[in-house]
Amino acid sequence: MEQKKLRENRRGVRKKAFLAAWPYTIPIMTGFLFLGFTYGVYMRASGFSVWYPMIMSVTIFAGSMEFVAVNMLLGAFHPLQAFLMTLMINARHLFYGISMLDRYNGKGIKKWYLVFGMCDESFSVNYTASIPEDVDREWFQFFVTFLNHCYWFAGATLGGVFGPMIHFDLKGLDFVMTAMFVVIFMDQWRKESSHVSSVLGLGLSFLCLLIFGSENFIIPSMAVILGVLTLLRGTLEKEEV
């Protein structure tokens, strides 16, 4: 019954999901156009043709990784090192995947696209957004991911094409990403009954940043968070019920 109704007005379903998803992506649009632009400019300034930021923004689609990749491409050819470095920088995606196991539970190509496009921002929005009852969840998730993908590609391409020609002062605009993560953190905070995990994530990461420095704190943070949450399993699971 439900299935039949969906098939009858597929376009309507898609349009509704798009209209529900798009407002959530507006801050990401600002951030990605800006950061993507910066990335495109940076690639050109490093001596690459415009094709590089275009292709890399679509295929890698992981912001910080792409900035690191510029340096890798400028250095000597070390594929294994590049591979291991990528795993370390992007290891946090493993946590996203585990959190999304029951949310990205569709089938076929749409599901795998969601996994492919699971950058920090797509994950955050798709995990926290309150999707209205009458909106198709998978299409909503698809449009969030797809729009983010488009913004990033558009930013990188525009930066690659026009970067070398223009100058302007947008200093500080990248704060839009910090502001968005703060808002997402607060939305999560309001929804949860226990704040233990939120506080741990913020506190332990900050501690690791102070100890290990900005270049090396992600992996220790993940390890400590995983360790402490594992130790607290008995207590936290009791609270859930």
Binding site: F95, Y96, I184, Q188, S221, L229
Partner: peptide
């Protein structure tokens, strides 16, 4: 069960990590 548990409790911690991550510089 352990992974299901992690699936529930990891995300809030990750949002905290992302706030710190975006300020790492």
């Amino acid at each position: 069960g352990y992974i299901q548990y992690l699936g529930k409790v990891l995300a809030p911690a990750v949002f905290g990590l992302l706030v710190v991550y975006s300020l790492k510089g």
